[in-house]
């Protein structure tokens, strides 16, 4: 009789454990695949953003022919009128476009003269390794408040910088011969109001030989 009770008890425990298991064995590959599927994909986001939002917005960039004289006349007023800043920071961004003539080419920059008649380098298109948030933050199209995890927002920066290096710079380096006329659109990050803006360092988003 006692043995029967034990068997019944074990059977009940076995059924309960079968219906409500204390743990699940899940293949690690499956878990990683599920995590990857739900994780934010900054590369994919950046590619979509580049094509569908960034390039169509280039016509909203301030013209270099307007911005450069404004900076020369009154940097603080130019900043107030044309720049944008993010959060609490002394740094600010210009989103600009224009056409200039190549005055010099180095390993990591191509200098342009924009104003008619000048041979001074007024714009320096950055062509080395691209770092920082100028493209992400310079246009105002993206906002940190839209991202629950700031790591995702920061990954967008790195992905956009990579797109500049792979989609823009190879062509620009080929176009940039001294004397060539080049259209550019891009973003400039300025550390603070004491920064020397001659030339203005611009990370290009689009360039064309004219």
């Amino acid at each position: 009789m006692r043995a029967v009770r034990w068997i019944i008890a074990i059977a009940i425990i076995a059924v309960v454990c079968w219906l409500f298991p204390l743990f699940h064995v899940v293949p690690l590959k499956k878990v990683k695949a599920e995590q990857a599927a739900t994780a934010f994909n900054a590369t994919r986001f950046a590619e979509n953003f580049w094509t569908n939002q960034l390039l169509p917005s280039l016509n909203k960039a301030v013209k270099a022919g307007v911005l450069l004289p404004a900076i020369q006349a009154d940097p603080a007023a130019a900043k107030k009128k044309y720049a944008r800043s993010v959060g609490l920071s002394d740094a600010y961004f210009y989103f600009l476009s224009g056409t200039g003539r190549v005055v010099s080419v180095s390993d990591d920059a191509i200098s342009l003269a924009v104003t008619d008649g000048t041979t001074n380098a007024e714009i320096s298109l950055q062509t080395g390794l691209i770092f920082g948030d100028a493209i992400r933050d310079g246009t105002g199209l993206l906002n940190a408040s839209d991202y629950p995890n700031s790591q995702d927002f920061n990954d967008i920066s790195a992905a956009l910088d990579h797109l500049v290096e792979t989609r823009v710079l190879p062509g620009l380096r080929q176009q940039a011969k001294p004397g060539a006329k080049i259209f550019f659109a891009g973003c400039a990050e300025v550390d603070d109001e004491s920064t020397d803006l001659k030339p203005l360092n611009v990370i290009p988003i689009q360039t064309k030989a004219e």
Binding site: V86, G87, L88, S89, D90, A91, A144, S145, Y147, S150
Partner: peptide
């Protein structure tokens, strides 16, 4: 209020 306010690091 802005949900996230980044403060620059120097």
């Amino acid at each position: 209020f802005p949900q996230k306010v980044p403060v620059a690091v120097e």
